[in-house]
Every structure is written in C-alpha cells, then in structure tokens.
C-alpha cells in the first residue's frame, strides 16, 4: 500500500510539472508539503475542531441507532413499518438538510455534531434492525428449544450474529460522518477544516486548501482503519 501511494504521488508530481494544468485546478505535492509543515499548528487546530464533531456525532448517532433498533426489534409489530419509514428517510439526501438545519440548531460545534449524528443514525438503524430480524430461523428455534429468555437469546445469538453487518455500517458511517461534518461546515461554521478550506479558497490560497484536504483524508483513513482493526478483533470468524 505504501508503494502504491508513493507511485501515486510521484505520478501526481510529474503530471503537474510536465502538463499545462493550471495551479487553480491542481497543485503539486511538492508545493503542498511545505505549506503543511509551515501551518501545522493551525491545521491541527482546525482538524481537532472537525474531528470532535465527527467522533462525537459518529459515536452518538450509532449508539442511539443501535439502542433504538433493539427497542424496535423487541416490538415485532412495529418493526416492519419502522424499517420502511427508515428506508424512505435514508433515501432522502439528508446532507442537503445541513444547508437549512443551521437555521434551526445554530452553526456552532454542537450543532454540527448533531447533524453528523443524524446522518449516522438512519443507516445504522435500518441495517441493525434488519440484521436482527434476519437471523436464521433454525438458530432461533434452537434457542427456543432451550427455553431461552428473549434477552439471553439477544445477547448470545442475535447481537453477535449481527455484528458483521453492524461493523460494515460503523465503517461506512466514518466516511459518512466526515463528509457531513465538512459539508455542514461549508454552510457556515466557527471553525473546522471545512470552514478553513472554504475561507482559503476565497483567497485562492490553493496549496492551503490542499493541505486541509490532506489532513482530513489522513485522519479519516486512520479512523476508518481503526474500526477495521476493531472489526477483525471482534469478528475473527468472518
């Protein structure tokens, strides 16, 4: 992976150097690197701002969705209608709401965290509820034949059997959360990488814009792979 990344950057560098591409469109890595080292502290501060929105939003969105899906799952009669409603809500590009949500809940960091949480909530709600419901009937019959109580069946069967699906959404929601945080910062914020990128773009300070993008890409990837590693630790059997 390090090798392919290296090749990618060399290719990028050579491409910018030997083609007529305008600096407004693409900046060479050799120009971005010094900008990063010179503005490291500023970038780190903005990154921290955004990361807090991403982490807290991701955490609460997923957690609340999981708790909700457990409640929905235990009331079989409502679960089907809630799932269809969730699918409809999920099909709406909620991110568009970021443009107007600012008017309702403000533009501070907490507001962004809430938007991130909402965007993470619905995918997890649908996938978790569906995964709980889809556990093979023979397994459920097995637990019934042990006269197992519902909570025990949930803890020992339904939840572990649904973990692969849950982890898939946890990973997807990392990307989801970062996108949401950045985009909602575009619509007005008091800090963060998204706001930073927008402001620097206004000055045509493109190496700075690219530096911002670099920072969020790297930290996003780290977050993503952390979840991937956690998944491999938890789900050795898959």
């Amino acid at each position: 992976m390090a090798l392919s990344l290296g090749v990618f950057f060399i290719f990028w560098e050579l491409f910018v150097k030997y083609s007529d591409i305008s600096a407004i469109v693409l900046v060479a890595p050799s120009e971005i690197l010094p900008v990063i080292t010179n503005n490291y502290d500023t970038l780190l501060k903005e990154l921290k701002y955004t990361s807090e929105e991403v982490l807290y939003g991701w955490f609460w969105g997923n957690l609340l969705a999981l708790l909700t899906s457990i409640v929905i799952f235990s009331y079989k009669k409502i679960s089907d209608s809630v799932i269809s409603l969730g699918v409809i809500v999920n099909a709406v590009p909620l991110i568009a709401l970021a443009a107007i949500l600012g008017g309702f809940i403000g533009t501070d960091q907490n507001a962004k965290t809430i938007i991130v949480a909402i965007l993470c909530f619905f995918p997890m709600l649908i996938v978790a509820t569906t995964a709980f419901k889809r556990v093979n009937g023979d397994y459920k019959r097995l637990f019934d034949s042990y006269n197992s109580s519902k909570p025990i069946t949930f803890i020992k069967l339904i939840f572990p059997a649904s973990l692969p699906a849950i982890f898939t959404v946890l990973k997807l929601n990392v990307v989801n959360a970062i996108t949401t945080a950045i985009v909602s910062e575009f619509f007005g914020a008091h800090g963060g990488i998204g706001q930073f990128i927008l402001a620097r773009k206004g000055f045509y300070d493109l190496p700075m814009v690219w530096a911002g993008i670099f920072f969020i890409v790297i930290s996003g990837s780290l977050f993503y792979f952390t979840i991937e590693i956690a998944k491999r630790l938890f789900i050795k059997w898959n």
Partner: peptide
C-alpha cells in the same frame, strides 16, 4: 419449557464465534 427435547437440524447451526 422443561427442556425435555433436543433438536438437531439439517445444518449444524453452530455459533461461528
């Protein structure tokens, strides 16, 4: 309820974890 019956399915239905 008194667990008088053991069931073996066509598939082993073991818990993979």
């Amino acid at each position: 309820e008194q667990r008088k019956i053991g069931f073996v399915f066509q598939k082993p239905t073991l818990l993979q974890w």
